[in-house]
């Protein structure tokens, strides 16, 4: 084996996330890292992954990273250019397998805040954009993925506002609230580890730690108690081929991977 490959944390997160997207699945993505992960998946294990954007773009042959989920790249040489309602209805109908979300705060059940910091919505300390399509996608897609750096401020015990539903308050809570059964958060890919959700409690459970990361580092970066898989693995680092595709074909101008 040649010497160890060099990669940054953004490249690592994108490569790991891409491996979860299987061939012939459908995914609604935004711009940034999720889009890069979906494009990389198409060039590796999932050539027939169907990418959709919430504003109406379906199946584009993305020439570059979009700057907006509604810009013309999102349906460049696409299969269909339709409406936002049509994309969301496709999710509600049960035909969207994956989506990616991010947020200012995430709790142990995968609930996400992207609305505000503070206690008074009419006078928040920080006004954030709001749901956009995030709450819809988190409600309606089968599996919600997150790519996010991990730190205590972001991984917090209590959200200031639940913008988008994870497992709400635990097992059965989504179904009780009326959200479609069988849907919910799937994996959280951070710069330290990959986290899944425990079947019994629906709480975050660490599945693998990235090379060089310790349990202590992860606990330090988390504002709540994490569960741990019986056998916590070491995340399989990016391969030379994944890195080549990511750097040369997916993001040659380093718009995303240059932000690490």
């Amino acid at each position: 084996m040649a010497g160890e490959l060099q990669y940054n944390r953004m490249e690592l997160m994108i490569c790991l996330a891409a491996r979860y997207l299987e061939d012939n699945a459908t995914v609604v993505v935004g711009t940034g890292a999720p889009c890069a992960a979906a494009m990389l998946a198409q060039k590796t294990g999932a050539p027939n992954l169907m990418i959709m954007f919430e504003a109406g773009g379906v199946g584009p042959l993305l020439p570059t990273m979009p700057v907006s989920v509604g810009d013309s790249r999102t349906f460049y040489r696409g299969l269909m250019a339709v409406s936002m309602a049509e994309i969301m209805e496709c999710c509600q109908r049960g035909m969207v397998d994956y989506t990616f979300l991010g947020g200012a705060q995430i709790d142990m059940y995968g609930n996400i805040n992207s609305t505000m910091i503070g206690t008074d919505l009419q006078r928040p300390k920080v006004r954030l954009p709001g749901s956009g399509g995030a709450c819809d996608l988190a409600s309606l897609a089968w599996r919600t993925m997150m790519i996010t750096p991990q730190d205590r401020r972001r991984f917090t015990a209590k959200l200031d506002f639940i913008t988008s539903p994870g497992y709400l308050t635990g097992k059965g809570a989504r179904e009780a609230a009326g959200l479609p059964p069988g849907s919910g958060p799937y994996k959280v890919v951070t710069d330290l580890c990959v986290i899944g959700f425990d079947d019994d409690t629906r709480r975050m459970k660490v599945e693998s730690m990235h090379p060089g990361v310790t349990r202590e580092m992860i606990e330090q970066a988390t504002g709540f108690e994490l569960l741990w898989a019986e056998e916590v693995k070491v995340s399989r680092p990016p391969t030379a081929e994944e890195l080549r595709l990511l750097r040369e074909e997916v993001d040659p101008f380093r718009y995303i991977i240059g932000r690490a």
Binding site: G32, L101, C135
Partner: peptide, 8 residues
């Protein structure tokens, strides 16, 4: 990442 969606 995008109006809300993915990462709003």
């Amino acid at each position: 990442e995008g109006p809300g969606a993915p990462g709003g």
